[in-house]
Design a binder for these strands. Structure first.
Length: 559
RNA sequence: UGACCGAUGGUGUAACGGCAGCACAGGAGAUUUUGGUUCUCUUAGUCCAGGUUCGAAUCCUGGUCGGUCAACCA
């Protein structure tokens, strides 16, 4: 292989395995979500890794729902997870599996372990078992039921399965080592009794395998070669290997490899906290555009490509990391800059009157749809005597470095004329500027005699007579500190919620925008990238702000 | 006082015993009918102490700091 580009540690491992001819030279990965919540950007990292690695090495990736706990899981989540993976641009073809597909085989293997004296039924309560487990620095003690006969264990286990015992009364444990320094090896629980309806197996089972017993065997059954998971499962690896070694005598072996999960600044990522935001109404739902969920990002206007690029850029390693959210924002700006259709909109309008422009006259001026894409052409936009401009683009008393409109100053109206501010009026009620009066240079239109005159700034505008109203939702970071989880005693990440993470404004948009379609990405020139919300209708257009444009003036002015 | 894992600019991530590179962020400038884009330039880093070696981010030893583990969750 002559690929000299730097490789991450997963690629190194895979290439090493390939060179050694391990597992017949196959690469087969899996993405194993538990259907108990919505996927977020951290899952996207894992998805890109698992599918990306398989793609790179000519292998396959399975989708496997890890549904071993019927009390927590639900079909509702299965569909959303599939939709999100597809949307991200990956396909598992027909390899859609469920850990529950393997319940029968897992059960038979459990009997095999019992027969070999490697597993036993424990009659103790959860509390007793927990007490006997010892602590991190002291060994555990053995259960009084540990040395039951094979016959008794088998009988009890079969009766557990038959539903003869109440929930929580007995468990099946692997007989390993109660003094093992790794607590997970201290006779871990393999099966527990749960009388709950399973979303796939219904009421067929009342005993359910634990993650540790199910995962490695599921990998084995699917022919997975590289079982990639996050760092917190590292300590589970000896157990993953132990079961495989007891049960399998082939040369083929799936291998668990851990990587550091994604953390994002100004964001919380745990399912529990995300759920709390939804349940307690801090956001409108899992797909609230401020959520780091895949469906939230989608509604916000993020593109699959931008998320894949982001996943590439953040890399992968085994050290804990916090990615700056600005890298995510960079990724979406970069992608949207290339593809977003340019349109004009005024979010915070103030009226501007061009006194020497004929009353009643309307011109349709050509405006470029996307300067990054010469093929995209132009559309006509109506220009008239009365316009809306952005309130921030006028200052009665200009400050140093201000390139926009002020009394006596000139500015170019994008795609139109150069205007000069003659005077302005203040609303006596509010004390705010209400009307700005200008004159225009009739020769300064694109292609005109004075069109190339240098003026300091260019601003956008909307003809009052032709403006459509729209609701625009301005989103900002959900939290106002880089690490929302960093809270003093008794505090909560909720305390760090950004009160201005959503501002809804009534805006004026150019006529073409009223005809926007779902799924189209727009740049409102000089403002940012916007995406029609699911609530959008031609009668009542609603846009979500995906992200602002990079704004070096705001940065300067803010100092 | 346990086991396992980790430590490279502000944030990520490369280097496989031989010039510490790239991206984001930050800064300066050029271009620009978006204070966008693009293009230049630029600030800033190997946790500490020993050892091995002609040569150490890399190997060894010891420390320091951080993470994970005591659900019948995954």
């Amino acid at each position: 292989m002559e690929n000299t580009s730097p490789r991450n540690f997963l690629e190194e491992i895979i290439e090493e395995d390939l060179n050694k001819g391990k597992n017949g030279g196959r690469v087969h990965t899996r993405f194993p979500p538990e259907p108990n919540g919505y996927l977020h950007i951290g899952h996207a990292k894992s998805i890109c890794l698992n599918f990306g690695l398989a793609q790179k090495y000519g292998g396959l990736t399975n989708l496997r729902f890890d549904d071993t706990n019927p009390t927590k899981e639900d079909v509702e989540y299965v569909e959303s997870i599939k939709e999100d993976i597809r949307w991200l641009g990956f396909s598992w073809d027909d390899r859609e599996y469920y850990a529950s597909d393997y319940f029968q085989q897992l059960y038979e293997w459990a009997e095999k372990l019992i027969k070999e004296g490697k597993a036993y039924v424990d009659d103790q309560s959860a509390e007793e078992i927990s007490r006997q487990r010892g602590t991190i620095t002291t060994p555990g003690i053995e259960s009084p039921y540990r040395n039951r006969s094979v016959e008794e264990n088998l009988d009890l286990f079969r009766r557990m399965r038959a539903g003869e015992f109440p929930e929580g009364s007995r468990v099946l444990r692997a007989k390993i080592d109660m003094a093992h320094p790794n607590m997970l090896m201290r006779d871990p629980i393999m099966y527990r009794i749960i009388y709950a309806h399973h979303h796939r197996t219904g009421d067929k089972w009342c005993i359910y395998p634990m993650y540790d017993y199910a995962h490695g065997q599921s990998d084995y059954l699917e022919g997975i070669t590289h079982s990639i998971c996050t760092l917190e499962f590292e300590i589970h690896r000896p157990l993953y290997d132990w079961f495989l070694d007891q049960l399998m005598d082939t040369e083929y072996r799936p291998r668990q490899i851990e990587f550091a999960r994604l953390n994002l600044s100004y964001t919380v990522m745990s399912k529990r906290k995300l759920l709390q935001l939804v349940k307690e109404g801090y956001v409108s739902g899992w797909d609230d555009p401020r959520m780091p969920t895949i469906c939230g990002l989608r509604r916000r206007g993020y593109t699959p490509e931008s998320i894949r690029n982001f996943a590439d850029r953040i890399g992968v390693a085994r050290r804990d990391n916090v990615i700056d959210v600005s890298l995510l924002e960079f990724s979406v700006r970069e992608n949207l800059n290339k593809r977003a259709i340019r349109r004009l909109a005024v979010l915070n309008p103030v009226k501007l009157v061009i006194e020497n422009y004929p009353e009643g006259q309307v011109e349709y001026l050509p405006a470029v749809n996307n300067p990054e894409d010469p093929e995209s052409g132009t559309r006509p936009i109506p220009f008239a005597r009365e316009l809306w401009i952005e309130r921030e683009d006028f200052l009665a008393e200009p400050v140093k470095g201000f390139h926009r409109l002020f009394p006596g100053g000139e500015v170019r109206l994008k795609y139109a004329y150069i205007i000069k501010c003659e005077r302005f009026e203040i609303d006596p009620q509010t004390g705010e500027v209400c009307t700005i009066y200008c004159t225009y240079d009739p020769q300064s239109k694109t292609g005109g005699a004075t069109a190339n005159r240098k003026v300091k700034g260019t601003i956008h505008w909307i003809s009052v007579a032709h403006a459509h109203a729209a609701e625009v939702r301005l989103y900002d970071r959900l939290f106002n500190v880089p690490d929302p989880d960093d809270v003093p005693e008794g505090g909560s990440f909720i305390d760090h919620l950004n009160p201005n993470s959503l501002r809804v404004v009534s805006a004026y948009i150019e006529p073409a925008l009223a005809e926007a379609r779902q799924g189209e990405h727009f740049q409102f020139e000089r403002l940012g990238y916007f995406f029609p919300d699911y609530d959008f209708t031609p009668e009542k257009p609603v846009f979500n702000r995906t992200v602002t444009l990079k704004d070096t003036w705001a940065k300067f002015a803010g100092k």
